[in-house]
C-alpha cells in the first residue's frame, strides 16, 4: 500500500473532495463534542483559565506528526509527496495576527465557527457568513496587496531543514515540547482560575 492515496492516483479530484468532506465533518463533529463549538470555552484560553484548546490542538499536531513519521518509517507513506504550505513570512505573520485578533474578539476561528453553527449558534453563523465576504473582499483587493502577499517568500521550509537536524530528533524534541507545554498549561490554568 502506497500513500498519499491521492498522489498515487487511488482516486481523482472529484472523489478527493468527498474524502475531504468526510474528514472535515469528522473533525467538526469531534470539535463540537469537545466543547469547541462554544465561544466562551474557546476564548478562555486567552484569559489563561482554560487551556483545553491549546492542549487538544497540540495533541492533534503531535498525533499527526507521530503517525506520519511512523508510516514513513514503515515505508507506507512517502513524505516527499505530502503537500506542505510554502512559507511567505510577512503576510503569514500579519494574517496570523489578524486571525488571532478576530479569534479573541469574536470567540471563533474558521473551523470552530462552522462547528458552532451545526448546533444552531447565531454568533458562529455571523463568522461563517463573514468567511465568503472576507474572501470576496480579499479577492477584489488582491491587485493592490499583491506585492505584500508575495513579500518574504522563502519556499517550503521544515524544522529539520532550517536547523539542519535529523528528522527523528526534531520529532522527539516536539514531543518533549508538547509534554512540557501540557504540564505548563495545567500549572497556568490553576494559577489563573477565577476566584
Amino acid at each position: 500500500m502506497n500513500t498519499p492515496f491521492y498522489k498515487y492516483g487511488a482516486f481523482g479530484d472529484e472523489t478527493s473532495l468527498v474524502v475531504a468532506f468526510v474528514i472535515g465533518i469528522g473533525f467538526g463533529f469531534f470539535l463540537e463534542r469537545a466543547g469547541f463549538g462554544s465561544a466562551r470555552k474557546l476564548v478562555s484560553q486567552f484569559y489563561l483559565n482554560d487551556l483545553a484548546v491549546f492542549k487538544v490542538m497540540f495533541t492533534a499536531i503531535v498525533t499527526a506528526m507521530l503517525g506520519t513519521t511512523y508510516l514513513a518509517w514503515m515505508g507506507v507513506l512517502d513524505l516527499s509527496l505530502v503537500y506542505l504550505t510554502p512559507t511567505v513570512l510577512w503576510p503569514q505573520l500579519v494574517g496570523g495576527l489578524v486571525l488571532g485578533i478576530g479569534f479573541v474578539i469574536g470567540g471563533y476561528c474558521p473551523g470552530t465557527s462552522v462547528a458552532s453553527v451545526a448546533t444552531g449558534r447565531l454568533d458562529g453563523l455571523a463568522f461563517v457568513l463573514g468567511l465568503p465576504v472576507g474572501t470576496l473582499l480579499f479577492a477584489e483587493a488582491f491587485p493592490w496587496i499583491r506585492g505584500f502577499y508575495e513579500n518574504g517568500s522563502v519556499g517550503v521550509q521544515t524544522l529539520p531543514g532550517v536547523f539542519d537536524l535529523p528528522y527523528g530528533l526534531v520529532v522527539f524534541a516536539v514531543v518533549l515540547m508538547a509534554l512540557g507545554g501540557f504540564a505548563g498549561a495545567s500549572w497556568i490554568e490553576k494559577k489563573f482560575q477565577p476566584r
Binding site: F11, G12, E14, T15, L17, V18, F21, V22, I25, A118
Partner: peptide, 20 residues
C-alpha cells in the same frame, strides 16, 4: 461514482442534505 458529479452528489446531496 468518481465522475464529474461525484463531489456535488456525495457532499451536497448525501452528506450535507441527508447524513449531517
Amino acid at each position: 461514482l468518481g465522475g464529474p458529479y461525484t463531489a456535488v452528489f456525495w457532499v451536497g446531496v448525501v452528506g450535507l442534505g441527508i447524513a449531517v
